[in-house]
Deep mutational scan, measured.
Amino acid sequence: PEEVRRLVEELYRKGVSPEQVKKILKKQGIDEREIEKVLRRIG
Rank of each mutant, 00 (worst) to 15 (best):
V4C: 04
G15S: 03
K14M: 13
S17D: 09
R33T: 11
E3F: 10
E36L: 05
K22R: 15
K22N: 03
E19A: 11
E36M: 05
P18L: 10
Y12R: 09
V4S: 02
R33W: 08
I35H: 00
L39N: 01
E19T: 12
L11N: 01
R5I: 10
K37S: 07
K37A: 13
E10P: 01
R41A: 15
E9D: 06
I30P: 00
I42F: 11
V21L: 11
V38C: 05
P18R: 14
R40G: 08
I24D: 03
E9Y: 14
I24P: 00
P18M: 11
L11A: 02
I24E: 05
R6V: 07
R5K: 12
I35S: 01
V21A: 06
L25R: 00
V4Y: 05
L11P: 00
L39Y: 02
V4Q: 02
R5H: 11
R6Q: 08
K27M: 14
V8K: 00
G15R: 05
E36V: 04
K26L: 14
I42A: 05
V21N: 00
E32N: 04
L7I: 07
I35K: 00
R5W: 15
E34K: 04
E36S: 04
V21R: 01
E3Q: 10
Q28Y: 12
L25F: 03
L39W: 01
V21I: 15
E10D: 10
K37C: 06
E9Q: 11
K14G: 07
P1V: 09
V4E: 01
L7T: 04
E3S: 10
I30Y: 14
R40E: 15
K14A: 14
E9S: 06
P1Q: 12
E36W: 04
R6G: 05
R33D: 14
E19Y: 11
L7S: 03
Q20S: 10
I30S: 01
G43W: 04
G29Y: 02
G43K: 11
E19S: 13
V4G: 01
E32I: 06
K23A: 14
I30L: 12
L11S: 01
K26P: 01
R6M: 09
E32T: 05
L39V: 04
G43M: 07
P18H: 05
E9N: 06
P1M: 12
V4N: 02
E10Y: 14
E3V: 12
R5T: 12
I24Y: 08
R40V: 10
K37I: 09
Q28N: 07
R40S: 08
Q20Y: 07
